[in-house]
C-alpha cells in the first residue's frame, strides 16, 4: 500500500514536470484592429451616442496595398481595419457608389513581444484622423486605444 502511494506521487510529479514545454503554435489571437463605425449626417457630429448607419456598396482598399479589403459589400455599419505595423500613418481608400474618399490615420505603434510562436504584437494609439475631400463629411476619434478585443475607435460621418 505504501509503495503504491509513492508510485502515485512519483507519477504526479513527473506529469507536472512534463507539462513544462514550449508551445510551438500560437493559439491566441493577438490581432489588433481599428473599428470605424458609420454615422449618418442627420445626427449631430459630436453626439456621444454610437449610431450605426448602414451603407451599401462599400469598397475599401489600403493605400499602398493591392489587396481589396471590402469589395462592394452591402449593408456595412462598421469597418474593421488594420493599421500598418511598419509605419505610423495608415491610409484607406473608401469607395461608396462610385465616389472615392481617403481615410487617414496617424498613430503610435508600441511593439510587444508575445512569444516565439506568436511573434510580436503591435499596440496602436490613434493620434489623429482625417479624410480627403470626397463623400466623407468628417471623422472623429471615439477611443484612441486599439485593443485585441475590438471596440469602436473612430466615427465616420457621411451623407445618408
Amino acid at each position: 500500500m505504501e509503495r503504491k502511494k509513492y508510485i502515485f506521487a512519483l507519477i504526479v510529479l513527473i506529469a507536472m514536470l512534463c507539462g513544462c514545454t514550449v508551445d510551438k503554435q500560437c493559439r491566441v489571437s493577438y490581432k489588433v484592429e481599428m473599428w470605424a463605425l458609420f454615422q449618418g449626417d442627420s445626427l449631430a457630429a459630436d453626439t456621444t451616442i454610437a449610431y450605426y448607419q448602414r451603407y451599401d456598396s462599400i469598397t475599401v482598399q489600403g493605400v499602398g496595398n493591392d489587396s481589396i479589403l471590402y469589395d462592394n459589400v452591402k449593408s456595412v455599419g462598421t469597418l474593421v481595419l488594420q493599421l500598418r505595423p511598419d509605419t505610423t500613418l495608415t491610409a484607406y481608400s473608401l469607395i461608396y457608389h462610385g465616389q472615392t474618399d481617403t481615410l487617414y490615420i496617424r498613430h503610435n505603434n508600441t511593439i510587444r513581444f508575445v512569444s516565439l510562436a506568436c511573434g510580436q504584437m503591435v499596440l496602436y494609439t490613434i493620434e489623429e484622423v482625417w479624410s480627403g475631400s470626397g463623400w466623407i463629411d468628417s471623422v472623429a476619434i471615439l477611443d484612441p486605444t486599439l485593443e485585441v478585443k475590438g471596440k469602436d475607435n473612430i466615427r465616420i460621418i457621411a451623407h445618408e
Binding site: Q82, D86, I111
Partner: peptide, 19 residues
C-alpha cells in the same frame, strides 16, 4: 538572441525583427 521574429499583419505585409 531572438531572430526572425514575426510582426504579423494579415492585411499589411508581415515584418520580421531581430533582437
Amino acid at each position: 538572441d531572438l531572430t526572425n521574429v514575426t510582426r504579423n499583419s494579415s492585411y499589411w505585409q508581415t515584418n520580421f525583427a531581430d533582437y
